[in-house]
Write a protein that binds this DNA or RNA. Structure first.
Lengths: 123, 123
DNA sequence: CTGTATCCGCTGAGATACTG
DNA sequence: CAGTATCTCAGCGGATACAG
């Protein structure tokens, strides 16, 4: 159970590093509203760089959470869409973000206490 | 909603970088079985380094998820324990890990397909 | 429009040695 | 026993420029 070499732990840790990365959850939750083109995603997530959006989408595509559809026209058109696997991830992720929102005050309070103590010691 | 500058998104993203880091979930799930001393945790999670265990525990403590109790004896004794906030996180995290376990085959399959295609193109 | 390629700084994380 | 300090290296991620 606690051994990172066993395949279950590795899968969990892989999933966590994916959803734990800086952009995946944001992209998935945006795509939850329906398919988007590349630059639509950029507009809806203004702070993401082109490079990171590409990398994030590739990662999600590799894991089978997002599908990528190319329409070879001029200009080219690429649509990204959640797969059913991607949609099924929404439930657990929402549970987590709801928890974060609900407990935000308590977390910030704890951080404040911790940092105040740290400063006391430093002083 | 998609703006990383708004406090809600920042809290969520902070939470994700905590539970998304390499060790936090492992530590929390170990502590779910009851309080542990520092070296007990090291023994139960053999692959964690001393440094990373310390840093992980500090982070969890700062967020109010774990409490740290020092008994100034010789040798010194320090017990780590989940707070009620820490326990309440177990539910959402379990939902996520259950999802990962349930969908592990499909994810690996998707990765296999993706990597096979990539190799085809490379060849 | 939808990417890829490159450079580069910052942080995460391991190894090792030292301290109260 | 329970840490801190320092070195080191790899990888993430931003900015920018280029390409089909």
């Amino acid at each position: 159970m606690k051994d990172p070499n066993n395949p279950i732990c590795r899968t969990i840790s892989d999933l966590l590093s994916r959803i734990g990365d800086k952009w995946s959850v944001l992209v998935v939750s945006t795509l939850a509203g329906g398919p988007r083109r590349f630059n639509e995603l950029r507009r809806e997530i203004p702070s993401v760089s082109q490079r990171m959006l590409t990398l994030t989408l590739r990662g999600l595509e590799r894991d089978g959470l997002v599908s990528r559809t190319v329409t070879p026209s001029i200009p080219p058109r690429v649509d990204y869409e959640l797969t059913s696997l991607g949609h099924s991830l929404q439930g657990p992720v929402t549970a987590l973000t709801d928890w974060a929102i609900a407990n935000m005050p308590e977390i910030h309070e704890a951080q404040g206490r911790f940092d105040a103590e740290r400063d006391d010691i430093a002083a």
